[in-house]
Design a protein around this nucleic acid. Structure first.
Lengths: 197, 197
DNA sequence: AAATAATGTAAGTAATCACTTACGCTTTGC
DNA sequence: GCAAAGCGTAAGTGATTACTTACATTATTT
């Protein structure tokens, strides 16, 4: 045996570039030639790191989730007592939502949902996302003794929807930055604290 | 001059099949060969009806919006006095949302948003959608003297988001039918009637 | 230093795709 | 009935793409 393999490190090194490319171009339009070019390597090196293009894409989905999760963890740590974590999350998303174009990866994936592996990766990502938000909503309501009408799980899905439409709006220029911020802040709060009548 | 052209009629005749195909396969995976096969014609006939594949896709986006609009108009007519149009709309969407897979066309389009024409078509579609919902929310609130806190325009965007996440959930099997129905009904009502605290 | 496995370069390949060309048949106006 | 334009069929084409092969170079272990 000679020369230990650095495949894992190389994967980590190239993944951000690969993610960026898929985010910019979507799935079909991202060619392996373009990926190689941007990574500054030959195509066949990518194929030594991942079995095929699909595997690259799935790795990207997971990578993107991890990036978000890291930001969230940071937000949870930086508590100031004046606001609940859920409120801080909303405030953060209101100002930063979509800035990396990551949701484009999700849309690209959703156009490929007849592939069971991509479907599974997206599914797992959404579940984790929603569960995290739901738990934050529950915590928020305990802290504030706020509305208990709308099931936190449902409210969490609605918040995911809010984020999605905010991304779409941003992408298509449907609303200006200020309105989008207002949308996330106000509709978000309405869902956090919702009461049934 | 001889033989009047029936291009417009032929377009109308084939459009549902074309839409169905884009909905099933997305943009890139829908090949012109497959379109022709499903339409029962040769490829070059499609090219006499539309300038290129992109034009076919844009026609489909508009077609799909018109289909929805027709259903809505029908719902508005069938008022029973007991519920507001906005409530009937929500109830309808709760049980029928996404059944034709039309949102898949939107996701496909969102993966192609660097094309200015597709972007414009999607943008127009979303604006019309949101404006319609906002006007229904305003009417609903006048009828019910319900909450006036969340701007109807924002609430309408949130409802669009709700529909989007419902579609995604359905597609990925994230929640069962009953939960999805509950999501649209309860979160929808919460947004319709929302109050600020 | 020599064997070995990792890493890099370059070229190739089979398949697919959007779109075209060529041409024959049919329907209409005059 | 006949010229002109619409309509249909079939085959092709150049470009692109995911993925491969062949081979030279480099680093590491013993």
């Amino acid at each position: 045996m000679a020369r230990p393999s650095h495949i894992t490190e190389k994967r980590c090194e190239l993944l951000p570039t690969v993610a960026q490319t898929f985010a910019e171009l979507g799935y079909r339009r991202t060619t392996t030639a373009e990926l190689a070019r941007r990574c500054g390597v030959q195509e066949n090196i990518l194929y030594r790191l991942w079995h095929d293009k699909k595997a690259m894409f799935i790795a990207v989905i997971e990578h993107v989730y991890e990036l978000s999760a890291e930001v969230w963890r940071e937000l949870l740590r930086s508590g100031d007592g004046a606001s609940t974590p859920a409120e801080r999350l909303l405030a953060y998303e209101a100002t930063h939502h979509g800035e990396f174009g990551h949701y484009r990866i999700v849309f690209a994936g959703l156009s490929e949902t007849d592939d069971p592996d991509i479907r599974a990766a997206l599914s797992a990502m959404y579940q984790r996302y929603q569960r995290f938000i739901a738990s934050q909503i529950r915590a928020h309501r305990q802290d504030c003794e706020a509305g208990t009408g709308l099931d936190p799980a449902l409210a969490a899905w609605a918040v995911v929807g809010l984020g999605t439409v905010a991304n779409i709006s941003r992408e298509l220029g449907l609303v200006d930055d200020q309105t989008r911020e207002q949308l996330l802040r106000e509709a978000g709060r309405s869902l956090l604290n919702s009461e049934h009548k």
